[in-house]
Design a protein around this nucleic acid. Structure first.
Lengths: 164, 164
DNA sequence: CACAAATATTTTAAGTTTGAAATATCTTCG
DNA sequence: CGAAGATATTTCAAACTTAAAATATTTGTG
């Protein structure tokens, strides 16, 4: 019964109105997401001489001050392992993060902010938040809450099945 | 400086609750967007042996059966000119689109679906819609409408100055 | 007409991203 | 112990992406 209401629901061989509404919703998410990401990328580049993916890694590490493994980073950011390797390489070259060995497991390493990385990110995060708030300045408090609620129902449905 | 409500509004030097709610909303948009895009990319790859960017180009051309210029394509998809060049090159190699000369302007070219491109896309679009509907199966009709409305207010704010 | 400016597209260099293969290390179990 | 499998990460090739430079063509102006 995972049948989507497409061919079964309505009688015709057209897809259903609900299916079309969901598609429109998805396309609108994509549109907003691209537009905002483009604006933020440009600001990052001009104001910080940096990039969004690097900011994302710094943000994750700022939340976990003791550092994270590469695998934790890639899971948290929902990007591939190989991807994180390259970003972290560049952040290491910039002196914003370090790779530390893990006691008892020489395969793994912990990535951690340096002092410079912490300081830089703390400053950038405030500016970043103000950029976002400006880009979303038409979003009222109640609409923000509604938006978050609706998007959460979508993410939860597609949550990775946790293996215990 | 063009200070947003951050430092000025509240009295403390913290950013405002509204600003934080907007940031959370943005991060949630990003999360859903990445998750869904990842799922769709995987399905495109496995089921169609293709990619999302190519699907996006085909979709744009399917809406404009007479074809589009490279610049129209890149504007419509909100990606750079150079980007579209590469995607179209590959679609040409696959025989799904063609580049046609433009009367009276030898700088430009029109990109148009071939018959094979039209046929392929028509089939894929139906399957794609059902994938999206499944991924959004927790999204009710009224929530879909609310989501679309809220996201539109955001896009409109950041709309490029229009020329219809 | 000549030639500067504008426009349409491609090329290029650098970075991001993926999925798969390769490495290195750890763990399990016969 | 030692091989087989599992796990953590990196490497690799291909594709995508951008911003900027280059190319080709058209348009506007004197």
């Amino acid at each position: 019964m995972d049948n989507s209401q497409g061919l079964a629901g309505q009688g015709g061989n057209e897809t259903s109105d609900l299916s079309k509404a969901r598609l429109r919703a998805w396309l609108q998410i994509l549109k907003v997401s691209r537009k905002i990401e483009g604006e933020l990328r440009e600001k990052m580049r001009v104001e910080f001489g940096s990039t969004l993916p690097r900011f994302d890694v710094l943000a994750a590490l700022y939340r976990e001050r003791d550092g994270m493994r590469m695998s934790e980073l890639s899971k948290s950011l929902m990007v591939s392992n190989g991807n994180v390797t390259g970003i972290v390489d560049r952040l290491v070259a910039e002196g914003l993060v370090v790779r530390l060995p893990v006691e008892n497991d020489r395969r793994a390493s912990i990535v951690r902010l340096t002092e410079a990385g912490e300081k830089d990110f703390a400053e950038r995060a405030l500016v970043h938040e103000s950029w976002v708030s400006d880009l979303f300045s038409d979003l009222s408090s109640s609409d923000a809450d509604a938006l978050i609620r609706i998007l959460r129902t979508i993410s939860h449905h597609n949550e990775a099945p946790h293996h215990d």
